[in-house]
Structure formats: C-alpha cells, structure tokens
Design a protein around this nucleic acid. Structure first.
Lengths: 229, 229
DNA sequence: CGACCGGTTGAAGTATATCAAGTACGGTGG
DNA sequence: CCACCGTACTTGATATACTTCAACCGGTCG
C-alpha cells in the first residue's frame, strides 16, 4: 500500500507495506467501469490515461473527463446501486483496485489513506467545476485554449513538461468534452496554430505562447476577442 | 446531530442526539462561501436554496449548480488551501455547519455519518456529470428541457410535486448554468410553452407534458428534432 | 489492393449571441 | 395614493460562428 499512498501524494506510514493492494494492468480500449453496472471497486490510476463518459438516454456519449495518474475512478458508485459513468482506457494503463469493503477497512486503520481519499475526492469536484468553465466559454477557440491550459497545468503538477503535450484521446473525444463538433476542434486547432500560439503534430502539441493562450481563454463572452491582439 | 443524519437520509443511531450541531440561518443573497478564501467548515443544507458558481479569471461567473436540502456545501475545500467556488443563498435558508476538525472527529465516532457523507459526495459527483449532460445538448430547448426534468426529479426525491416547480433562481442564473444567453432562456421557455409542454408564470412553472419534454431532452445532436412531433 | 478509421478542409444553412427597445414588478419617497 | 426608479424579464432584428453534410488525405489492417 506504500506505493498507493505515494501515488496519492501521501508519505506512507509504518506498516503500510504489510497491506497488499493489487496492481492491475488495463490495456488500451478496455472499459474498466461500465455505466449502469453495480459498483464493486474503486480504482486509483497509477499510470496511463482514461476517459470517463456518461451515456445519455438516447445513446449519445458525453465525455466528462480524462483522468490520469493519482486520480480515482468509480467514486460515483459509492452512493448506490449503479455507476453513472463509464471509464475507458485510452492507452495501456495500470490501476490499484480496492473493493469497497477493503477500502472501508483500510480507511479506518490508516488515517493517511482516509485523508488522501478526501483530497482526491475534493480534487475531483474541483475538476467538475473546471469542466463547467471549459464548456461555458462561447467561442470554440476559448474552449480549446482552456482545455489545453488545463492539461498543461496538470502536466506541470505531475512534474512533466508543461509546454509539450501528448493528447492520448481522439479529436472526437475532445470535441465531446468541449461540447462542439469534432470538425470544429480541428479548425480551432488550426486557428490557434496559425496565430502562433501552438504547433500541432498529430496528437503531439507544443504550446508556444502561453500568455496569448491565457488571454484567449479569458474570452468568456463575445464570440472572438481580437485575432490580431 | 440526529436531525442532521435524517436530512442526509440516515437513521440516527443512539447517542447521536448528545452531539450538538449548530443550525445556522442564512438570509437570501448572503454569500455563505467565498471562492478563494481558505475553507473552514462544511455546510449541510437543511432547507432553502443556493447557487454555486466559479469565478473565471476574467470575472465572468459560471453557475455550476443549485444545491438544495440534503446537499453539502464546501466539499471542494477539503483538498486544500482555498475554495474553488462560491455558494450564495437564493432564498432564506438554514444549514448545519461543521468545522473540518469536528467533522473528522464525528466521522470516526459515528460510522453512519461517515457513510452519509460518502453518499453525499458521490451524489455530488453524479450531479457534476449531469451538468455536463445539460451543457452538452446543442439546442437550447433541449438544455432547458433537461434542466427542468432534473429539477422535477429532484423535487420528486424530496417528496414534493414533480410537475409544479418553483425556480428560486433568476433567468440569468439559469442561463449561466445552461451555457446560453439569458434572452435565449426566455425564448426557449416561450417555445416550450407554445408547444404545450409547460406553463410559465414568473418563476412558477407547471410541467404539462413530461413525455414530450423527455423526447425534446433526448435531442443531443441535430439542432431541432421535430417541432410538430 | 480496398476498406476503414482518424483527421483535415470546404460550402451552406441556421440557431443563437448580441444589441436594443419595451414590459412588468417591487421598492422608495413625495 | 401615485410618481418614480431599479431590477428582472420579454420580445425584436441583425450578424456571425457554429453545425452539418461532404469530399479528401494518410495511415493501418484485413
């Protein structure tokens, strides 16, 4: 369990390593959590990338987020009978899996784990708010800019480069997450590229002008601020 | 604390009433939680209505939700230094307030409280997903329909009428929540009214044709389904 | 090789943002 | 009591950024 706590950003206490938490590997494309099914476990991402999506009544899939290392999958199942969203691996990944019963037990025995969970949950809620911010922007460029800056910040937190991003998800997934058509994602990416804010190579993106991106992201209202600001 | 547990949907255990949890009243318009300030307490809504909003960098306010009875305010503060969003009372309300230290203590002593909190958190996460669903609809009528149906469902859960809604928030707040201009909310409300789905009287709304609303809400893609379905 | 998937780019129609005027309501002060 | 003001809400006209439909390119897999 020492590893688990480290992933969650806690220093493991003595005795933590006596408890074994299974590390499970998940291949790209595999659905780790099925929406609608009854929840049995919680998963803490150790490495890799996922997408979470809710399935609307009509079958349309809305991508709500792209959880990565240190994030928790399956929290929505604590309340009850069924998961509200699915989690799908975007690339080969590894997760710690804890049954709900185990979790309850371990949380009581190891307060640091309890606090780590609290923090993780809280972070999750904050991310939900960010999602709202991303989707609330009117212009598609602003949405995209916010999304990229979010990714950039997260990369920085994980100690990686904040200017060279690798997007593990398809344009379609991004489009769904941003609430626009996938063609629009392509176009907006093109615009930002033309304006010199970034460089695109397939799923590799290099942010060139963070300040410019920030100011574009600020455009909450008003279709477009100033292409030639 | 017995009351508190009942509000959260748990049956209070023996001894629960020995612990006093202060019930605090909040007048309409008061900001209970200020975004950016350091978190000190958690609040469980006993009655009334709130809106939660994140303030973007540029000062634009995005409404993320309208918490009501049994919901928890301030969960985003568990992770750390500052609240990510504000909570403002839309009408005169009452909340149970618990300092973070108290909470930690009580959770260990009363497992039912712990579970109730878990459920509440989980519900919160699920609502965040719903927000995404609401904002992902393309046509404004669909967004509005989803929003109203959500409200209707919640009312039903609280044991109130699911067809007569009282919206405690302004059209502007709804607009922000839905990600559209406030004029569009008015117009869409008008449309739905013309189509016989509902009747509007200021902030009182009577849902007339739930089935029709459902089918409108289903329109995730494609501007408008069929005005004369 | 042909089919398929992911991505990019083009052209046309339309829903919605924006600006602007007008209405109803609730308060305050004469 | 009525005039007055501010806020919330409604309604109208125009412009535009987006969706949609479509064709096209470059991979990869059968």
């Amino acid at each position: 369990m020492g590893d688990l706590l480290q992933v969650l950003g806690q220093t493991p206490p003595h005795g933590a390593d006596n408890v074994l938490v299974p590390l499970r590997s998940v291949r790209a494309g595999v659905t780790l959590i099925h929406a609608g099914l009854s929840p049995s476990s919680l998963h803490v991402v150790r490495l890799g990338a996922f997408k979470t999506q809710v399935v609307c009544d009509d079958g349309y899939e809305q991508v709500t987020g792209f959880p990565g290392p240190s994030e928790i999958l399956g929290l929505d199942g604590l309340q009850g009978e069924r998961h509200t969203f699915s989690a799908i691996a975007l690339e080969d990944s590894a997760v710690y899996s804890l049954s709900l019963r185990e979790l309850d037990d371990l949380r009581q025995r190891f307060p640091p784990l309890d606090h780590a969970m609290q923090r993780a949950v809280s972070r999750q809620l904050a991310e939900a708010a960010q999602l709202a911010q991303v989707m609330s922007a009117v212009s598609s460029e602003a949405r995209l800019a916010r999304f990229l800056l979010q990714r950039s910040r997260r990369m920085a937190l994980l100690g990686q480069s904040s200017t060279r991003l690798r997007l593990p998800m398809s344009r379609r997934d991004i489009a769904s997450h941003l609430g626009v058509a996938h063609e629009t994602v392509s176009r907006s990416l093109g615009e930002l590229s033309q304006w010199g804010c970034l460089r695109v190579q397939q799923r590799e993106i290099e942010l060139m002008d963070l300040d410019r991106l920030q100011s574009l992201a600020r455009n909450t209202r008003g279709p477009l601020a100033s292409p030639a600001l």
